[in-house]
Protein backbone atom coordinates (compact mmCIF):
# COMPACT_ATOMS: atom_id res chain seq x y z
CA UNK A 1 0.00 0.00 0.00
CA UNK A 2 1.20 3.50 -0.80
CA UNK A 3 2.56 5.29 2.24
CA UNK A 4 0.37 8.26 1.46
CA UNK A 5 -2.71 6.04 1.34
CA UNK A 6 -1.87 4.49 4.70
CA UNK A 7 -1.34 7.97 6.09
CA UNK A 8 -4.68 9.21 4.80
CA UNK A 9 -6.62 6.22 6.13
CA UNK A 10 -4.99 6.68 9.50
CA UNK A 11 -5.88 10.37 9.64
CA UNK A 12 -9.36 9.83 8.28
CA UNK A 13 -10.16 7.63 11.21
CA UNK A 14 -8.36 9.81 13.73
CA UNK A 15 -10.52 12.72 12.68
CA UNK A 16 -13.74 10.75 12.86
CA UNK A 17 -12.83 9.46 16.30
CA UNK A 18 -12.08 13.00 17.39
CA UNK A 19 -15.37 14.33 16.07
CA UNK A 20 -17.21 11.58 17.91
CA UNK A 21 -15.39 12.39 21.14
CA UNK A 22 -16.07 16.09 20.89
CA UNK A 23 -19.74 15.69 20.02
CA UNK A 24 -20.38 13.37 22.94
CA UNK A 25 -18.64 15.74 25.30
CA UNK A 26 -20.71 18.62 24.04
CA UNK A 27 -23.94 16.76 24.39
CA UNK A 28 -23.31 15.67 27.93
CA UNK A 29 -21.93 19.00 29.02
CA UNK A 30 -24.92 20.76 27.62
CA UNK A 31 -27.22 18.52 29.62
CA UNK A 32 -25.08 19.05 32.68
CA UNK A 33 -25.32 22.81 32.21
CA UNK A 34 -29.10 22.53 32.35
CA UNK A 35 -28.91 20.50 35.52
CA UNK A 36 -26.63 22.24 37.92
CA UNK A 37 -25.97 25.80 37.00
CA UNK A 38 -23.72 26.55 39.94
CA UNK A 39 -21.12 23.82 39.83
CA UNK A 40 -21.00 23.59 36.11
CA UNK A 41 -18.28 25.19 34.05
CA UNK A 42 -17.60 25.06 30.30
CA UNK A 43 -13.95 25.72 30.96
CA UNK A 44 -12.70 22.12 30.69
CA UNK A 45 -14.46 21.68 27.36
CA UNK A 46 -13.02 24.88 25.97
CA UNK A 47 -9.62 23.97 27.25
CA UNK A 48 -9.70 20.52 25.72
CA UNK A 49 -11.18 21.22 22.33
CA UNK A 50 -10.26 24.75 21.37
CA UNK A 51 -7.13 26.78 21.07
CA UNK A 52 -8.68 29.86 22.67
CA UNK A 53 -6.73 32.16 24.95
CA UNK A 54 -7.87 32.95 28.45
CA UNK A 55 -9.76 36.20 27.68
CA UNK A 56 -11.63 34.64 24.77
CA UNK A 57 -12.52 31.68 26.95
CA UNK A 58 -13.89 34.01 29.59
CA UNK A 59 -16.08 35.68 27.05
CA UNK A 60 -17.55 32.46 25.74
CA UNK A 61 -17.75 30.58 29.01
CA UNK A 62 -21.16 31.80 30.06
CA UNK A 63 -22.83 31.44 26.69
CA UNK A 64 -23.52 27.77 25.96
CA UNK A 65 -25.14 28.43 22.58
CA UNK A 66 -22.15 30.40 21.43
CA UNK A 67 -19.85 27.62 22.59
CA UNK A 68 -21.86 25.02 20.69
CA UNK A 69 -21.78 27.14 17.60
CA UNK A 70 -18.07 27.76 17.93
CA UNK A 71 -17.17 24.12 18.40
CA UNK A 72 -19.61 22.67 15.88
CA UNK A 73 -20.02 25.03 12.96
CA UNK A 74 -17.54 27.91 13.22
CA UNK A 75 -15.20 27.55 10.25
CA UNK A 76 -12.68 29.89 11.82
CA UNK A 77 -12.12 27.35 14.58
CA UNK A 78 -9.67 24.79 13.21
CA UNK A 79 -10.92 22.17 15.62
CA UNK A 80 -14.60 22.73 14.84
CA UNK A 81 -16.59 19.65 13.89
CA UNK A 82 -17.26 21.09 10.46
CA UNK A 83 -13.52 21.40 9.83
CA UNK A 84 -12.61 18.05 11.33
CA UNK A 85 -15.18 16.25 9.22
CA UNK A 86 -14.01 18.14 6.16
CA UNK A 87 -10.48 16.95 6.81
CA UNK A 88 -11.66 13.40 7.36
CA UNK A 89 -13.45 13.58 4.04
CA UNK A 90 -10.50 15.13 2.23
CA UNK A 91 -8.37 12.26 3.45
CA UNK A 92 -11.02 9.80 2.36
CA UNK A 93 -11.34 11.52 -0.97
CA UNK A 94 -7.70 11.09 -1.78
CA UNK A 95 -7.94 7.36 -1.07
CA UNK A 96 -11.40 6.71 -2.49
CA UNK A 97 -10.16 3.66 -4.30
CA UNK A 98 -9.01 2.11 -1.01
CA UNK A 99 -12.22 2.39 0.97
CA UNK A 100 -15.55 0.91 0.02
CA UNK A 101 -17.97 2.97 -1.95
CA UNK A 102 -20.41 2.69 0.96
CA UNK A 103 -17.91 4.11 3.38
CA UNK A 104 -17.08 6.96 1.05
CA UNK A 105 -20.76 7.77 0.56
CA UNK A 106 -21.34 7.63 4.29
CA UNK A 107 -18.53 10.06 4.99
CA UNK A 108 -19.65 12.22 2.12
CA UNK A 109 -23.16 12.40 3.60
CA UNK A 110 -21.68 13.30 6.98
CA UNK A 111 -19.73 16.09 5.34
CA UNK A 112 -22.77 17.45 3.53
CA UNK A 113 -24.74 17.34 6.79
CA UNK A 114 -22.17 19.49 8.58
CA UNK A 115 -22.51 22.03 5.80
CA UNK A 116 -26.30 22.30 6.01
CA UNK A 117 -27.66 25.80 6.54
CA UNK A 118 -30.12 24.75 9.19
CA UNK A 119 -27.38 23.40 11.43
CA UNK A 120 -26.15 26.66 13.00
CA UNK A 121 -29.70 27.98 13.12
CA UNK A 122 -30.98 25.05 15.12
CA UNK A 123 -27.98 25.09 17.38
CA UNK A 124 -28.86 28.66 18.15
CA UNK A 125 -32.60 28.43 18.52
CA UNK A 126 -33.85 24.90 18.85
CA UNK A 127 -32.99 21.93 21.00
CA UNK A 128 -29.23 21.50 20.46
CA UNK A 129 -29.28 17.88 21.63
CA UNK A 130 -31.28 16.94 18.53
CA UNK A 131 -28.61 18.44 16.30
CA UNK A 132 -25.77 16.83 18.21
CA UNK A 133 -27.57 13.50 17.96
CA UNK A 134 -27.93 13.88 14.21
CA UNK A 135 -24.19 14.38 13.92
CA UNK A 136 -23.29 11.63 16.36
CA UNK A 137 -25.47 9.27 14.37
CA UNK A 138 -23.58 10.12 11.19
CA UNK A 139 -20.42 9.10 12.98
CA UNK A 140 -22.00 5.88 14.17
CA UNK A 141 -23.04 5.09 10.61
CA UNK A 142 -19.44 5.51 9.64
CA UNK A 143 -18.26 3.08 12.33
CA UNK A 144 -20.85 0.53 11.35
CA UNK A 145 -20.18 0.87 7.65
CA UNK A 146 -16.43 0.56 8.17
CA UNK A 147 -17.04 -2.50 10.30
CA UNK A 148 -19.29 -4.36 7.91
CA UNK A 149 -17.88 -3.33 4.54
CA UNK A 150 -14.13 -2.82 4.81
CA UNK A 151 -11.91 -5.76 4.02
CA UNK A 152 -9.65 -6.76 6.90
CA UNK A 153 -6.47 -5.88 5.08
CA UNK A 154 -3.70 -3.44 5.59
CA UNK A 155 -5.89 -0.38 5.20
CA UNK A 156 -8.25 -1.55 7.89
CA UNK A 157 -5.33 -1.99 10.26
CA UNK A 158 -4.11 1.54 9.64
CA UNK A 159 -7.62 2.87 10.17
CA UNK A 160 -7.84 1.12 13.50
CA UNK A 161 -4.42 2.22 14.60
CA UNK A 162 -5.52 5.80 13.98
CA UNK A 163 -8.82 5.26 15.72
CA UNK A 164 -7.42 3.76 18.91
CA UNK A 165 -4.49 6.11 19.12
CA UNK A 166 -6.86 9.05 18.93
CA UNK A 167 -9.21 7.45 21.41
CA UNK A 168 -6.44 6.84 23.93
CA UNK A 169 -5.33 10.45 23.64
CA UNK A 170 -8.91 11.68 24.07
CA UNK A 171 -9.42 9.60 27.20
CA UNK A 172 -6.15 10.79 28.70
CA UNK A 173 -7.08 14.39 28.01
CA UNK A 174 -10.55 13.97 29.37
CA UNK A 175 -9.30 12.65 32.66
CA UNK A 176 -6.44 15.03 32.86
CA UNK A 177 -8.35 18.23 32.36
CA UNK A 178 -9.55 18.09 35.94
CA UNK A 179 -6.02 17.66 37.24
CA UNK A 180 -4.27 20.39 35.31
CA UNK A 181 -4.70 22.37 38.48
CA UNK A 182 -2.21 20.56 40.69
CA UNK A 183 -3.94 21.48 43.92
CA UNK A 184 -7.00 19.50 42.94
CA UNK A 185 -8.14 17.35 45.82
CA UNK A 186 -9.31 14.01 44.56
CA UNK A 187 -11.44 13.45 47.61
CA UNK A 188 -13.75 16.39 47.05
CA UNK A 189 -17.18 14.86 47.26
CA UNK A 190 -18.91 17.81 45.64
CA UNK A 191 -17.49 16.74 42.35
CA UNK A 192 -19.75 13.75 42.07
CA UNK A 193 -21.91 15.30 39.32
CA UNK A 194 -18.79 16.11 37.37
CA UNK A 195 -17.65 12.52 37.38
CA UNK A 196 -21.08 11.32 36.55
CA UNK A 197 -21.24 13.47 33.46
CA UNK A 198 -17.73 12.59 32.50
CA UNK A 199 -18.70 8.95 32.50
CA UNK A 200 -21.85 9.70 30.61
CA UNK A 201 -19.88 11.53 27.95
CA UNK A 202 -17.86 8.43 27.21
CA UNK A 203 -20.77 6.04 27.61
CA UNK A 204 -19.25 4.58 30.75
CA UNK A 205 -21.90 5.49 33.26
CA UNK A 206 -23.85 2.27 33.26
CA UNK A 207 -20.75 0.18 33.42
CA UNK A 208 -19.64 2.23 36.40
CA UNK A 209 -22.88 1.67 38.24
CA UNK A 210 -22.63 -2.05 37.68
CA UNK A 211 -18.99 -2.22 38.76
CA UNK A 212 -19.01 0.08 41.74
CA UNK A 213 -22.11 0.36 43.82
CA UNK A 214 -20.82 3.00 46.13
CA UNK A 215 -21.55 6.36 44.56
CA UNK A 216 -19.10 8.55 42.76
CA UNK A 217 -15.55 8.29 43.81
CA UNK A 218 -12.80 9.78 41.71
CA UNK A 219 -10.52 6.79 42.38
CA UNK A 220 -13.04 4.43 40.86
CA UNK A 221 -13.52 6.68 37.89
CA UNK A 222 -9.77 6.72 37.31
CA UNK A 223 -9.68 2.97 37.61
CA UNK A 224 -12.41 2.55 35.03
CA UNK A 225 -11.10 5.07 32.52
CA UNK A 226 -7.51 3.93 32.73
CA UNK A 227 -7.57 0.28 33.63
CA UNK A 228 -10.84 -1.41 32.81
CA UNK A 229 -10.22 -3.96 30.08
CA UNK A 230 -13.90 -4.21 29.26
CA UNK A 231 -14.53 -0.53 28.89
CA UNK A 232 -14.10 0.38 25.18
CA UNK A 233 -13.03 3.92 25.96
CA UNK A 234 -10.47 3.03 28.58
CA UNK A 235 -6.83 3.78 27.99
CA UNK A 236 -5.79 0.18 28.44
CA UNK A 237 -8.44 -1.04 26.00
CA UNK A 238 -7.35 1.48 23.38
CA UNK A 239 -3.69 0.61 23.69
CA UNK A 240 -4.42 -3.12 23.60
CA UNK A 241 -6.30 -2.64 20.35
CA UNK A 242 -3.58 -0.44 18.98
CA UNK A 243 -1.12 -3.22 19.62
CA UNK A 244 -3.38 -5.82 18.09
CA UNK A 245 -3.67 -3.95 14.79
CA UNK A 246 0.00 -3.15 14.73
CA UNK A 247 0.81 -6.82 15.26
CA UNK A 248 -1.43 -7.67 12.36
CA UNK A 249 0.54 -5.36 10.06
CA UNK A 250 3.74 -6.83 11.38
CA UNK A 251 2.65 -10.39 10.77
CA UNK A 252 1.56 -9.62 7.24
CA UNK A 253 4.99 -8.13 6.64
CA UNK A 254 3.54 -4.77 5.77
CA UNK A 255 5.88 -2.56 7.74
CA UNK A 256 9.58 -1.96 7.63
CA UNK A 257 11.82 -1.36 10.64
CA UNK A 258 9.00 -2.06 13.01
CA UNK A 259 11.20 -3.05 15.98
CA UNK A 260 11.28 0.41 17.49
CA UNK A 261 7.54 0.93 17.18
CA UNK A 262 6.88 -2.54 18.47
CA UNK A 263 9.01 -1.80 21.50
CA UNK A 264 7.32 1.53 22.20
CA UNK A 265 3.80 0.12 22.03
CA UNK A 266 4.74 -2.90 24.14
CA UNK A 267 6.41 -0.75 26.75
CA UNK A 268 3.45 1.61 27.05
CA UNK A 269 1.02 -1.25 27.35
CA UNK A 270 3.07 -2.86 30.12
CA UNK A 271 3.26 0.39 31.95
CA UNK A 272 -0.51 0.74 31.98
CA UNK A 273 -1.18 -2.93 32.53
CA UNK A 274 0.95 -3.08 35.65
CA UNK A 275 -0.48 0.02 37.26
CA UNK A 276 -3.21 0.11 39.86
CA UNK A 277 -5.55 2.97 40.70
CA UNK A 278 -3.89 3.20 44.11
CA UNK A 279 -0.36 3.58 42.81
CA UNK A 280 -1.38 5.98 40.05
CA UNK A 281 -3.11 8.33 42.44
CA UNK A 282 -0.57 8.19 45.20
CA UNK A 283 2.27 8.84 42.77
CA UNK A 284 0.67 11.86 41.06
CA UNK A 285 -2.07 11.14 38.59
CA UNK A 286 -1.43 14.28 36.60
CA UNK A 287 2.15 13.32 35.83
CA UNK A 288 1.12 9.76 35.04
CA UNK A 289 -1.36 10.98 32.44
CA UNK A 290 1.16 13.38 30.94
CA UNK A 291 3.67 10.56 30.58
CA UNK A 292 1.15 8.38 28.81
CA UNK A 293 0.22 11.18 26.49
CA UNK A 294 3.86 11.79 25.62
CA UNK A 295 4.31 8.10 24.91
CA UNK A 296 1.26 8.15 22.64
CA UNK A 297 2.63 11.16 20.75
CA UNK A 298 5.97 9.44 20.39
CA UNK A 299 4.20 6.43 18.90
CA UNK A 300 2.38 8.71 16.46
CA UNK A 301 5.71 10.22 15.41
CA UNK A 302 7.28 6.82 14.98
CA UNK A 303 4.32 5.83 12.79
CA UNK A 304 5.11 8.80 10.60
CA UNK A 305 8.72 7.80 10.28
CA UNK A 306 8.19 4.13 9.80
CA UNK A 307 5.03 3.84 7.73
CA UNK A 308 4.22 7.20 6.18
CA UNK A 309 7.67 8.57 5.37
CA UNK A 310 6.93 9.50 1.81
CA UNK A 311 7.83 13.18 1.73
Amino acid sequence: MLSRVADSLYWMSRYIERSDGILRMLKVNYMYSQDSVNEFSWKPVLRLFTYLEEPETKQLETNPRAILKFIVTDKSNPNAIVNIVTRARENARSVQDHITKELWQCLNDYYHTTKEDWLPKWLQKDDPITILDVLIKQGLLYYGTADITMSRGEGYSFMNIGKFLERAILSVDLLNVRFIDNKYDIDTVADAPYWKYLLLSIAGFELYLKTYRSGFDARNVVEQVVLNNHFPRSIIYSITRLQRYFDRLKQEGQVNNYQQLDFMIGKLLSKVRYSTAETIISQNLHQYLIDIKNDLYAIANAMNQCCFAYS
Binding site: E154, C307, F308
Partner: peptide, 16 residues
Protein backbone atom coordinates in the same frame (compact mmCIF):
# COMPACT_ATOMS: atom_id res chain seq x y z
CA UNK B 1 4.84 12.86 -4.11
CA UNK B 2 4.15 9.11 -4.03
CA UNK B 3 6.69 8.52 -6.78
CA UNK B 4 10.45 8.76 -6.88
CA UNK B 5 12.99 8.12 -9.61
CA UNK B 6 16.09 6.19 -8.69
CA UNK B 7 18.66 4.82 -11.10
CA UNK B 8 16.43 5.85 -14.02
CA UNK B 9 13.51 3.79 -12.79
CA UNK B 10 10.27 5.03 -11.30
CA UNK B 11 9.15 3.69 -7.93
CA UNK B 12 6.18 4.27 -5.71
CA UNK B 13 6.61 4.63 -1.99
CA UNK B 14 4.69 1.99 -0.14
CA UNK B 15 4.53 1.05 3.51
CA UNK B 16 6.83 -1.81 2.60
Amino acid sequence: RDLVVDNHRVYMKTTF
